[in-house]
Design a protein around this nucleic acid. Structure first.
Lengths: 249, 249
DNA sequence: TGCAGATTGTGCGTATATCGCACATATGTG
DNA sequence: CACATATGTGCGATATACGCACAATCTGCA
């Protein structure tokens, strides 16, 4: 059809693989076909191919689920960038110091995509978000910071098209107000978002390189404590400086 | 060709994606074609498809590298299994108690595939291994434990065919001796491997469910300290018991 | 500088793998 | 029990992927 340099069957297969987005652990053929906008027969053959290759397993009946083998792709990315060796220890060390988990993320499509996440025992805010999971672009400090780092045309385009996914009464629903927040993040070089995604949670983000940001969340005490903000931002900036030094990502 | 229910183009595309295995961050077309055993022209079209879909980016010249978007597949798996919410906190808590990072792994092909890894500030042994990376099956405690958990025909098959990748003078090179270690692991329900992969490092592993194992590594002091072994195994068993309770993986 | 070997870009005829409809069967829902 | 929805699969038509072949480009070495 379109371009002789694009293998459409492969593209469709990737869409099938992408249908397993984590929102449901097990999918039926009909569900897969719907999510990937493919003919059922086509989706079926592609799923069977994935089963044959060991990336998906059938539960005997009409359920299909990813196998751990899909993690190899992530391993290819993370290993190539040496994330485990260079980035993770830095995140862990600063997370321990500041007392909150630190995440690294990039922009991917209309989402914030988590690249790495320091873990921390006894962390009050138990994320539940892991590597490869996504967060809303417009209602997180990470997302707004990422927007601020893009060229203005691209940022404007994303601001206009990304879905509004705020989940709190305080969440901004006017894209112009979000734009103002993004502009402020751009000039300040950091972003603070209060209660946009989870009630009582404040998110902080700073850039680390041209593509990536790091951030942390913490429970908002009674009244905005400027000292808390200061400490969180300072910790992130130190961490970012160290990450930039390593040159990874 | 073979089976009308298998889309060969998609299978080839997956082979191309798998060519990015983390051993080199950036690959040329010729290298990709070689690794995936495909005709150069075919590999090229498949890579261009990956670029079109945003999973690979070209560095302008003749270099191709994965984009973070491939992590979405990992996110689909991890999110579906709720690894971030159910598994990670348990690993972190026990790792902090025992003072060493704990990894969870499954068997995938001829490799140990890392599913999750607790991080720990100030850990002496800095792994460098991350989620999705692989370890040798025959020369790690994790791998031998996984072998011990498989039906004997499958274990025998893997024992005979998996590559010998020991990297120390003490590493076993006789498959029969490794088989004896696996047999012992099966009857004991745990596995200890000394200096098989890294000199001076001892690995410990115990099962957690029918498919997965958890393990940790620590530097071997002078002389085998039975108390250290005891402590490591005990910690892993407690951790495994808790993981089995959660029902994840 | 110049040559040899390797890598890359791509056009094109042909064989065939893929598409997607359509029908039959299975499942499950009120 | 009937209706709605999901699944398995055969098949003809055709879009599509294959892979050779040639040209352009790059890389290293003498």
């Amino acid at each position: 059809m379109q371009n002789r340099n694009i293998a459409s069957t492969f593209a469709k297969g990737l869409a099938v693989l992408g249908a397993f987005d984590g929102s449901a652990p097990v999918l039926s053929l009909a569900e897969i076909a719907r999510r990937s906008s493919l003919d059922r027969a086509v989706a079926r053959r592609l799923v069977l191919t994935l089963v044959d290759q060991g990336f998906v397993q059938s539960d005997g009946a009409r359920g299909y689920r990813l196998t751990p083998r899909v993690l190899r792709f992530a391993g290819g990315y993370l290993g190539g960038r040496q994330v485990g060796r260079l980035v993770q220890p830095v995140l862990d060390r600063h997370a321990a110091r500041v007392g909150a988990p630190i995440s690294m993320a990039v922009l991917d499509g209309h989402d914030v995509l988590l690249l790495a996440q320091s873990t921390l025992q006894n962390s009050v805010v138990t994320f539940g978000f892991t590597l490869g999971s996504t967060l809303p672009l417009l209602h997180t400090s990470l997302g707004r910071m990422l927007l601020a780092m893009r060229p203005s045309e691209i940022a404007a385009e994303l601001l206009a098209t990304a879905p509004l996914q705020g989940r709190t009464p305080e969440a901004l629903t006017d894209r112009r107000l979000i734009r103002a927040e993004v502009d402020q993040a751009r000039s300040a070089g950091l972003c603070i978002a209060r209660a946009q995604l989870e009630a009582g949670i404040t998110g902080y983000a700073v850039p680390t390189g041209p593509e990536a940001v790091i951030g942390l969340s913490r429970a908002q005490g009674l009244g905005h404590d400027a000292q808390d903000d200061q400490a969180a931002i300072k910790a992130l900036q130190l961490c970012a400086a160290e990450l930039i030094q390593t040159g990874a990502v």
